[in-house]
Amino acid sequence: MTCSSTSTDCLLELYEEKLELEDYQSGVPRWCTGCGDNAILTAIQRLCRDENLRPEKTVFVSGIGCSSRFPHYMKTYGFHGIHGRALPVAEGVRLARPDLTVFVNTGDGDCCSIGAAHWIHAIRYNMNLTVFLHDNQIYGLTKKQASPTSPIGTKSNTTPRGSYLEALNPLTVTLGIANASFVAQAVDWIPESLYDIVKAAHHHKGLSFVRILQRCPEWLPKLHESDMQEPDSVQLLHHENSLQISPSLARIYKNQLRHDPLDMNRAREIASSTDVVPVGILYQNRDIPCYEDIRKLDILRTNETVRKGFEAELDKYAV
């Protein structure tokens, strides 16, 4: 057995660099003014600062789309991957570097369309990842095409007469997959609850899936207007084993629901609701094992073992 690390606050008064929000900021976001991605970026930067996540030990993986530009704006490690493949890349990072904190930023097109298969299996594998689905219900980067989560009737460049299909609900889909261990929904226009949910997701061991409803002021400016103007259209979920609502938030958002995050049936009901926008943790089960814990690797992935493995494979083709 090898002792790999110890707590750093023991014995030595180490000079821990305390990072500020700006220290996690890299470059000026190219997102449109008013875009909900800005709010998500702020919430995640706050999380990094408050949890003192070391930039060199943190990685953001994304696919393609507006939201997937996320790693460019974080001064951490990042991988701007290929369309729909954020999750497999993140799983690879997780397996090869279990010491890193891995976040995934994916959009509704990226995750729920071309990457849907990966999404389903990533939920099933339940690896220790924090996944943020930036759901603006439209393809924004390519200038307004209907996405799988676009509400029926959405007029877009690909559906000029309005989309024909009912929108896919990422929450009900995720809750229907075996081994789902953390499913939550947030909205970008309530920063306090967004931060609380992001934080809870980070603290959860296993795959935390957070769907964040976000505004797209450029292509669907009216989509969430009524939800924002009418606080009762948002239903805040709370429970003693889950998130609690602060008095200042409770003053504005009076539509509240006590929901036990272990109650899967109720979670599915809430996820299916169409009259209100549920915000909070719908389901959390801390007992579902992570894939990396189930799989007992019988060899340590050192550079030496990887090299030997490569050589063994290549030797098969030796003449």
């Binding site: 875009c35 909900g36 800005n38 709010a39 702020t42 200042s248 504005i252």
Partner: peptide, 9 residues
Amino acid sequence: TPRCSTCNE
């Protein structure tokens, strides 16, 4: 301020 969603407007 606590309700600001950092939209830059």
